[in-house]
Amino acid sequence: MIARRLAQLYVGLALYGLGIALQVASRLGNDPWDTLHQGLARHTGLSIGTWIIIAAVAVMALWIPLRQRPGVGTISNALLVGAFADFFLWALPDPRAVAVRWGYLVAAVLVAGFATGCYIGAGLGPGPRDGLTTGLAARGHSIRVVRTGIELTVLAAGWLLGGTVGIGTLIYAVTIGPLTHVFIPMLEIKAAPRTKTRGHPEDDALPAAPVPAECGDAA
């Protein structure tokens, strides 16, 4: 079971990096966090993928006062998504025709939705940004309000730094929720039921350990 979870996790993280690369390469508008990463990259000598990693580590530092605990999926997400994004940005052909750029954008959103279902469905820990959202929400705030506030803040900062905001940003915002709503249950790996212990009937009442459910991260 753990081998399957790990395989699904790393496939999901690789695909998420591909989705980021496709959307950035389309030049039609990035999701909020990648608008920030791109803006920072344009003002430094660092790549977008490097900024994805730096931002993820910085966000995880904010988990400490919120008493959030990372899992292997959280740490893998923080370290690998940026590396995969840089690799695919290097490997993908530069789309010049408008039709190809739109093809990149549509593929990016679909891949991101599927990838989110993969790594969250693996049940090995939320992404860094998801953990920040749920940690703040646990202090009595609405998840929707917290997530919207964070994403609007990073989007505005990214735009001011020169990150690409456009129709792709809007399409991502409108579609990623419904896509993850479909893919997360589809790809969730259920916890194995407990084996009953003979001679201890009280064990029959113990439920199987639940798989944590997180909101979709971008990275």
Rank of each mutant, 00 (worst) to 15 (best):
W51K: 11
G127P: 14
D130N: 12
M186A: 15
L46C: 13
G135N: 13
L18C: 13
T148A: 14
G166E: 08
C118P: 05
A108Q: 07
A14D: 13
A112D: 07
Y10D: 07
P193N: 09
L170W: 09
R5D: 08
V165K: 01
P193K: 05
V211F: 01
G12I: 09
I20A: 10
G19M: 13
L155S: 04
G45R: 15
W102D: 04
L170M: 12
T133K: 03
A112P: 02
I120G: 00
I189S: 10
Y104H: 15
F183Q: 06
R67Q: 08
A83I: 06
G17S: 06
L155A: 13
I176H: 05
I53L: 13
A218P: 03
E202G: 02
G121P: 08
R96Q: 15
V59D: 03
L15Y: 11
Y119M: 07
G17L: 09
V57H: 07
D94W: 10
I143W: 04
A137S: 12
I54T: 14
I171R: 05
V59L: 07
G123I: 01
I48K: 06
Q68P: 02
T148H: 10
L18D: 14
R42E: 08
L13T: 08
S142R: 13
G71E: 12
A78W: 07
L6A: 09
P201Y: 03
G123C: 03
V111L: 07
S26I: 13
L155T: 07
L40R: 12
T44P: 11
G19H: 14
S26V: 12
S76H: 05
N30W: 09
A21Q: 08
V154R: 03
L36Q: 09
T133M: 15
A209E: 11
V81Q: 04
L110E: 00
G117K: 02
L15R: 08
F114A: 11
R147G: 07
V165Y: 00
D203K: 06
I143Y: 00
A91P: 06
Y119A: 01
L179V: 15
I150R: 01
V146N: 00
H37S: 12
V174R: 02
I143D: 01
A83E: 06
A25G: 14
H43I: 10
A138F: 14
G49T: 14
D130T: 08
V100K: 04
P207G: 07
L13M: 00
I167Y: 11
G17Q: 09
P201E: 04
M186V: 15
A208Q: 10
A122N: 14
Q68H: 03
V146F: 01
I75N: 02
H43G: 12
P185Y: 04
G121A: 04
G45E: 11
L124M: 12
Q68I: 05
V109E: 01
G103I: 14
G117H: 07
E214M: 13
G158Q: 04
D203C: 00
F183I: 10
D34N: 15
G140N: 08
D31W: 02
A55I: 14
A157C: 12
H141F: 10
A41H: 10
T44I: 15
V11L: 15
L187H: 11
